[in-house]
Write a protein that binds this DNA or RNA. Sequence first.
DNA 1: CGGTTATGTGACAGTTTTGTAAAAAACGAG
DNA 2: CTCGTTTTTTACAAAACTGTCACATAACCG
Lengths: 233, 233
Amino acid sequence: MGAKVLVVEDDAALAELLTYNLGKEGFEVRHAPDGDEALLAIDEDMPDLIVLDWMLPHMSGIEICRQVRARPETREVPVIMLTARGEEDDLLRGFETGADDYLTKPFSMTELVARIKSLLRRMRPTIAGNVATFGDITLDRETCRVRRGSRDVHLGPTEFRLLDVLMQRPGRVFSREQLLDRVWGHDVYVEIRTVDVHVGRLRKALNRRGEPDPVRTVRSAGYALDETYKASA
Amino acid sequence: MGAKVLVVEDDAALAELLTYNLGKEGFEVRHAPDGDEALLAIDEDMPDLIVLDWMLPHMSGIEICRQVRARPETREVPVIMLTARGEEDDLLRGFETGADDYLTKPFSMTELVARIKSLLRRMRPTIAGNVATFGDITLDRETCRVRRGSRDVHLGPTEFRLLDVLMQRPGRVFSREQLLDRVWGHDVYVEIRTVDVHVGRLRKALNRRGEPDPVRTVRSAGYALDETYKASA
DNA sequence: CGGTTATGTGACAGTTTTGTAAAAAACGAG
DNA sequence: CTCGTTTTTTACAAAACTGTCACATAACCG
């Protein structure tokens, strides 16, 4: 499946149009009609991107945007705002608040989709739709398969998600806590060292004898995919 | 503000308009009339953002964009493209190539400025936050990597934090007490001379034979990054 | 100069962090 | 329920890093 997109829009007709079209593009769409629903949705399952109508019943778009930017775990989520024509003031305040892009109604679906893809690519460089690539490693979310070069790599579900998370930002160091959050879920309690074990298994599955290890251990910090390796492969 | 913006635009009148207005906003603007000049300008002093006309004499905007994206050191630089009305094909190809945003001529200066600021804020992790540079030394907090020139420098956690602190204000002298505070934490008790040992280790890791030492000892005061060195490198 | 103080640095013993095998527990398809 | 797979925990060894000390150098000062 594609990225998760949260659409915050009170106009039911437009909301449905968006849901339908984005869904067709392979995004997993969730809809929230107002600010409270939006924050709830964000809590329940973190979207990869938010499309935010600027005019909402109770809480203004600007307020939601501010709240999203305020929390550390959502700070990185890109926001596209939808404004009515000619609200240039709002627009500028929107950018101030930290929106990443905006579209003026009415807008073309093609354009919205292009902008969404652009922002997502910027956020998660290796992910183009369902397939992520890092050097000679390929991870396909659709078929749940991983390949290295021409060989098939068998991973258990946990190793698969682990690699998936690491590949969302190659090179970035994820702490064990962050990995627990993202791979196991923020409500599950497991020993921190379990991460190490699974990283070990991921390595064993990924590396045949003589191949360089794409997983980097950063002492006292966590694990990351090694950009050096990517360059060499 | 004060970010460096490279404007690649062959139409002299528009170029001047851009230069003037962006300058007024506090950006440091450099102008290149064609692709070759653009690449040269990028080499000479890396811009923080590129405004790129899509229709250029020799090399098309798309080609420049591709080249910018191909090099690791410019991969993260955001690109805004300027297109004539109705070239929707170009637009989509532009996003494919990795442009981050686009504007259709004619556009309002306010809007361009807003978009530039938004992109710069989004890139902040790279420009203002996560990567520090001092001369030929680079410290990346996201990947936990340090490089000197083209060589990878391996540091232990303590040396890493130490360099991090020093790089937060290059040239400033930090007393050993201050370094203990900031690197070890103000609640830890360790001998003051431990700082010296770690500075020594940092030096050893940073300097290959024949290279000048970027760390300056200030007798009876502390340590600092040497601005003399920065100038020379 | 000689005396004094500050810094550089090798060695080392102790600590922390990581890799990993193996056991135990959990899970899932028949 | 049973078997095979996967996950989690645990324990231990290996590796990496740390803080301290002692002594060698270097800088300062009258």
